[in-house]
Amino acid sequence: MSLLCCIRYRIDPFKREAFETYAREWLRVIPACGGRLLGYFMPHEGTNDVALGLIEFDSLADYEAYRARLRSDEGGRANFEFAEAERLILGEARSFLRRVEA
């Protein structure tokens, strides 16, 4: 059974371009650290302060190992620091979902 980590970001709507830069960096870093990135999704119509990141893992243990690698990855650390310095993320929530199968 694989798990989908759904990260829901509440972003500063005036810093959407900066958040998109942040999201683009994860497109390289997340796969290098072991996550199967399904994508980052930016606001388009409607709500202008919600973005999503979707990453798949084989298990919760694989997610925990990924998080450890992410914290020690130079690009990952730099991206976290960029987001903090720019103050572009106002809130973040993670949900772990499993696929419904027949």
Rank of each mutant, 00 (worst) to 15 (best):
F96S: 04
R99F: 10
I30C: 08
A32L: 08
E17I: 06
D58C: 10
T21I: 11
L37T: 00
I89N: 00
E20T: 03
L90C: 00
A65Y: 00
R98P: 01
A32H: 00
L90R: 07
P43G: 06
D73P: 01
I30Y: 00
D73H: 14
L54G: 10
L70D: 01
G35D: 02
D58G: 15
R24V: 05
E56P: 07
L60D: 10
L97Q: 00
N79C: 03
F41D: 05
Y40S: 13
Y22P: 02
N48C: 08
G53K: 11
R10S: 11
L54I: 14
I11W: 04
V100P: 08
R77W: 02
C6L: 15
L90I: 04
R87H: 13
D62M: 08
F57L: 05
N48H: 12
A65D: 05
G34P: 07
L54D: 12
D62L: 01
L54E: 12
I89T: 00
L3E: 11
Y22W: 07
C33R: 06
G91N: 12
A23M: 05
I7S: 11
A93Q: 13
I55N: 11
L60W: 09
P13W: 10
R36W: 00
R67H: 12
L38D: 02
C6V: 15
V29I: 15
S2H: 05
T47A: 14
F82P: 00
L27N: 14
L90W: 02
E84A: 13
S95R: 11
F19S: 08
A93I: 10
R8A: 07
E20Y: 06
Y66Q: 05
R8D: 02
A93L: 12
E84D: 10
E74K: 09
D49Q: 13
T21S: 13
L3A: 08
S2C: 01
E64A: 10
C5H: 13
D58R: 11
S72F: 03
G34W: 07
Y40K: 00
L60I: 10
Y40V: 09
A78K: 08
G39Y: 06
C33E: 06
C5K: 15
F82G: 04
I11Q: 03
L88I: 10
R77S: 00
N79V: 01
A68V: 15
R99D: 11
I11F: 03
G91P: 03
I30E: 09
F96D: 07
P31F: 02
